[in-house]
């Protein structure tokens, strides 16, 4: 386990996880959840950071929901596996989005942890002091999504 993970994610070891990529500064969890492994997505006012065109750049749950809606997702009530859909879960801490996770075909989840590695995990495994709790789920009809770093 990468140094410091146990303090940051108290439930990760007991819930189970697997590292699936080397560390990378090239992309973050929002990009990874959206299907990109080549950009850092964040609604920062600095124009150099990617955010879907025409959307408000602010760190609110509503802004993040709109970003995924612009990609064809729609809000849904749970993170349960549903045939024919892929899902995204958005974590928030004190009301601010911190992480997006993407559901895999087996019902597990994949996330990029900041500038560190990608992991597969349960939703509960990443809840805690760093990313807070899952605050919203979205789904869209299944179409190709990357399963490894390009």
């Amino acid at each position: 386990m990468i140094a410091g993970f146990e303090d940051a994610f108290p439930a990760l070891r007991s819930e189970g996880f697997e590292e699936t990529s080397p560390p990378s500064q090239k992309y973050n969890c929002i990009a990874w959840a959206a299907g990109s492994a080549s950009q850092w997505w964040w609604p920062y006012q600095h124009p150099a950071y990617y955010w879907p065109e025409g959307l408000t750049r602010e760190v609110t749950l509503d802004a993040f929901l709109r970003a995924f809606v612009s990609l064809g997702f729609e809000p849904c009530p749970t993170g349960e596996l549903e045939a024919g859909f892929e899902k995204v879960a958005i974590y928030a801490l004190r009301g601010k989005p911190t992480l997006a996770a993407r559901q895999l075909a087996d019902g597990g989840w994949t996330s990029k942890l900041g500038k560190e590695v990608d992991i597969t995990h349960t939703l509960g495994g990443l809840e805690g002091p760093v990313y807070g709790q899952v605050a919203a789920y979205l789904r869209r009809p299944l179409r190709g999504a990357p399963t490894q770093v390009a």
Binding site: C29, W40, K96, L99, G114, K115
Partner: peptide, 8 residues
Amino acid sequence: TRLLSSIH
């Protein structure tokens, strides 16, 4: 900041 996605 190694675990952060937030540029802010």
